Simulated scan of single mutants.
Amino acid sequence: MPNVNALLADAVHALAWLPWWAESLVLIAGCCAVVLPLHGIAFRWMQRVVSGRSLFWRSLVARTHGPSRLALLTVALGAASATAPLSWEVRIVLNQILLIAFVALVGWCCATAIHIATVIYLRRFKLDTEDNLLARKHFTQIRILERAAVTLVALVTVSVGLMTIEPVRQYGVSLLASAGAAGLILGLAMQPVLSNLVAGIQIAITQPIRIEDAVIVENEWGWVEEINATYVVVRLWDWRRLVLPLTYFIQKPFQNWTRDGASLIGSVFLYLDHRAPIETMRAKLAEIAARSRLWDGNVVNLQVSDARESVIEVRMLVSARNAPQAWDLRCEVREKMIGFLQAEHPDALPRHRSEWIGAEAPLRRAEERPRRAA
């Protein structure tokens, strides 16, 4: 720093012939012109260093680009303002700006540190495995807590930044002390946001849903794709996105197909004639499941679950490793069983029975008319 101060002092002496405002402007612009290229060179060098490494190191360097540039600019402007021949009023305003920039830098660094710690913690878990219950549990908890922590850091940063300005600080203190109508209106306006934040913390602790859970909400089936600070994004089976507030999963009932594990039991219903060969179908179902790559080898069963005057209800159960495979396995079992019945047992397919009255019926009615007339 002594060398930097000496260089700045020499620059001030060399620009002494300019007005004070022009001299200060040139000095500040010169510091920025020196710092920004140096930062760009250093950042590109760091990118080349980590280019052959993992995605974590590349994202780490990318995440620190903004905070490091803001830090260098703050230091450069602070050094320039300390040396430039500024008036007292201008120096106070510039120092206020530098103080706010420093507070923002601290908040930005805290948010970046939270994100880096989250990424480091979650690197040990993989969501693309078949049994990913533990990974989904940790991903859900850490992501929600990360967003809550970043939101808290942003609120504290904005609050501290505003408190550095004297008029705003006095207004905030008087507003909190009076607890008047404005505070009441603000509290009522912030109620949905605060309720969603509290619901997010509750979901992170109790975990009624997790990332990549298979759920049924609003009569729609899909997967939990994203859990934000105030809402949840559900990726539906047809690629649509259903966005719901966090409070929905606390206040309303919904179905979670993967609450305790990824494996599921799928059911297939067929309505057949009473002459359907149940034992033969049971053996065929076991054969279909054994030959399918989607069956996990745990559950395969066939039962007559209901009997009506015209058809019987046959329920077939098969298990799979996850919800998508369970859906595909159900479709495969339904298609192959119907094809088997059509080819081998067509009498088992449902049919309607009716009694046919032949041509003698009109003659009989014609013979009965004279008798009734007599």
Rank of each mutant, 00 (worst) to 15 (best):
Gly180Pro: 11
Asp10Lys: 14
Gly261Thr: 10
Glu313Gln: 13
Ala76Phe: 03
His274Asp: 14
Leu94Gly: 01
Val4Asn: 09
Leu294Phe: 05
Ala71Gly: 13
Leu186Trp: 12
Pro362His: 15
Asp10Ile: 09
Ala181Tyr: 08
Cys32Lys: 08
Ala214Lys: 10
Gly200Met: 02
Ala84Met: 00
Arg369Phe: 12
Val75Gln: 04
Ser267His: 13
Glu212Val: 09
Thr74Phe: 03
Ala361Lys: 15
Glu313Ala: 03
Ala189His: 12
Trp108Arg: 14
Gly66Met: 12
Pro277Ala: 00
Leu70Met: 06
Met316Asp: 01
Arg44Pro: 03
Glu335Trp: 06
Arg136Met: 00
Ile120Tyr: 09
Arg259Phe: 10
Glu220Phe: 10
Thr157Gln: 04
Glu212Asn: 13
Arg136Glu: 00
Ile227Phe: 07
His274Lys: 04
Leu70Phe: 09
Ser24His: 10
Met1Tyr: 13
Ala22Cys: 06
Ala348Gly: 05
Leu302Ala: 02
Asp260Glu: 05
Val234Cys: 02
Val34Asp: 03
Val311Ile: 12
Glu335Asn: 08
Leu55Glu: 08
Trp221Pro: 13
Phe125Arg: 14
Pro346Lys: 05
Ser267Ile: 12
Gly66Val: 14
Ala283Asp: 02
Cys331Met: 04
Glu225Val: 02
Leu197Gln: 11
Val106Gln: 06
Leu70Asp: 10
Met190Trp: 14
Gln255Thr: 14
Gly183Ala: 11
Cys32Trp: 09
Ala71Met: 10
Val61Tyr: 09
Arg123Asn: 03
Leu99Trp: 13
Asn95Thr: 08
Val12Trp: 04
Glu335Met: 03
Thr140Met: 00
Val299His: 09
Ala149Thr: 15
Arg69Lys: 11
Phe125Asn: 01
Arg371Ala: 08
Val233Trp: 05
Asp260Phe: 12
Val4Ser: 03
Val234Leu: 00
Ile144Lys: 04
Glu220Met: 04
Val156Asn: 00
Ser68His: 15
Arg364Glu: 01
Arg308Lys: 14
Ala361Gly: 10
Asn3Arg: 10
Ile41Glu: 00
Leu194Met: 15
Asn95His: 12
Asp131Asn: 08
Asp131Val: 01
Leu25Asp: 02
Pro37Asp: 01
Gln255Trp: 12
Met163Phe: 13
Ile205Thr: 12
Gln47Tyr: 05
Asp273His: 12
Leu294Trp: 03
Gln191Ser: 11
Gly180Gln: 02
